[in-house]
Nucleic acid binder design. Structure first.
Lengths: 90, 90
DNA sequence: ACTTATTGTTGTATTTCTACAACAATAAGT
DNA sequence: ACTTATTGTTGTAGAAATACAACAATAAGT
């Protein structure tokens, strides 16, 4: 028999730019975690795409980085920022 | 004794423009719910600020309305769109 | 007055999110 | 070789998000 799914269905994984944004600013996960008041392991889960952040957390990250949420999280893969700025190969 | 809080703390309530956006488009909660594949009662909970959407749900709403998430949900109260467009009283 | 659509309320079930702890694995610096 | 910082892994616990159902309260239309 087919079990009817109750509760929250598993949403597709989410792409994120957290590692890039951290690297640009020289932040460890612990640094970022402290800045937005979460456990440092939560940052790890987010970077690996193991779960989606709450909207509250996403808004805090966006505020911290001074970016729109869509620049940090996306349902579709990100293209590298470096390419966006300098263009692709000639 | 002071019980140490484990799990997710209750984030502050979130302001939203869902009723306005629905009204502008003449959509019932059921209509919107169907469009983004959630239960119609979930829209009710969101409109009343009784809970925060997942980022996944917020992204689907933003995509549906063709707006940035920040135009739909905010930690600070929204000013009326009508005022934004036409300005305040003279 | 009747019907219908919309919204609110209450309750139960399940999954996800987040905290926290302990430890392994790397990498960097001394 | 030793220490330290950073990241990954595994496990437990508790709160929040969502589905679903049933019913009450309005409002609108006929």
């Amino acid at each position: 028999m087919i079990a009817k799914t109750i509760g929250r269905p598993s949403p597709p994984p989410l792409h994120n730019r957290l590692p890039v944004l951290r690297a640009e600013r020289g932040l460890s996960r612990q640094d970022l975690a402290t800045a937005i008041s979460v456990n440092y392991q939560t940052i790890g889960y987010l970077e690996r795409g193991e779960y989606h952040p709450s909207l509250d957390l996403a808004l805090r990250l966006a505020e911290y980085f001074n970016l729109p949420i869509e620049a940090i999280f996306s349902r579709t893969p990100f293209s590298p920022l470096s390419e966006k700025v300098y263009g692709g190969p000639a």
